[in-house]
Design a protein around this nucleic acid. Structure first.
Lengths: 152, 152
DNA sequence: ATACCTGCAAAACCTTTGCACAGTT
DNA sequence: AACTGTGCAAAGGTTTTGCAGGTAT
């Protein structure tokens, strides 16, 4: 999704992890990196999208045809438990996954086509904290989807 | 959920429909009201919650034991197509339903307990329109979930 | 050797559908 | 009679799991 960036000695460990591949971030979290998991991670790194398990499996099999769908699901659960990816439900039956280190953002779904557009909004980031506080809570995350149709 | 309110002749047709039971609103939409559908509607009217299909089916069978789960699903789809109810996905596999005439609102989910708290926020209603417009869209709906933990 | 991971197939789970029958107009 | 709605059971789609074999430490 983003080009490689030279790692200078000025970067903190945290910076390095944020810039690192999903595979390396998973390693940094202590996840044992098997060949299959590395393939799944590389597939996720190569997609700037919201793929479902089947799409991930298909791409993974292009790299290593022996990977089982069950392994994809098991890996997704592992990564999600460590907050390395997030899973979404956009209304159809299946789960769709995306990188968990992206800034928190919203999704605008085109009701006509199903196309998903990501957006970020600072005002909303602020607002959600105020809403939660009003209700006596501390926000740990959000899920914001707008459904709409293209203007005239 | 709310007590009965006397219907004065000053209320418009729209007011009456908003105050009416789900069953009557469905009738007003031209849906043929069978015994089973009436039972399902009454169950939905009696719950101020976000039940899934199985919970609705259970309550419905307490009133009429012959109602099939398939009928519940078929009725939910019918009501959803007419925008009389809305369906949500809170992360587990199943769909959960709620009255569609409630003001659009958000859900705050307690990450510890799974408890769902509804909230309404005028500022957000405003903000979502501006966000969509910025992206070239007209909002037709939204889904807003905040996840959080109770304050200290 | 021990512990964990994987593939495969079967199971589990939620939801939809085919079909024959019942209910209504 | 035509039409629609229903119950039941079967099928569908997605995700999980049991188990036997594989891999790594």
């Amino acid at each position: 999704m983003s080009g490689e960036r030279e790692v200078s000695e000025r970067l903190s460990m945290e910076d390095i992890l944020i810039e690192a591949s999903l595979e390396n971030r998973a390693r940094a979290q202590g996840i044992k990196m098997t060949a299959q998991r590395a393939v799944v991670c590389s597939v996720l790194d190569g997609i700037d999208d919201h793929p479902d398990a089947l799409q991930i499996h298909d791409k993974a099999r292009q790299i290593d045809p022996r990977i089982a769908l069950a392994t994809v699901y098991r890996t997704m659960r592992l990564l999600e438990d460590r907050d390395l990816i997030k899973s979404h439900n956009f209304g159809d039956g299946r789960s769709r996954y995306e990188d968990g280190l992206k800034d928190e953002h919203g999704h605008l779904i085109n009701s006509d086509t199903g196309e998903v557009i990501e957006f970020h909004d600072a005002e909303f980031e602020n607002l959600k904290k105020r809403i939660a506080k009003r209700l006596g809570y501390d926000v740990t995350g959000h899920r914001l989807e707008l459904y709409g149709k293209p203007l005239g």
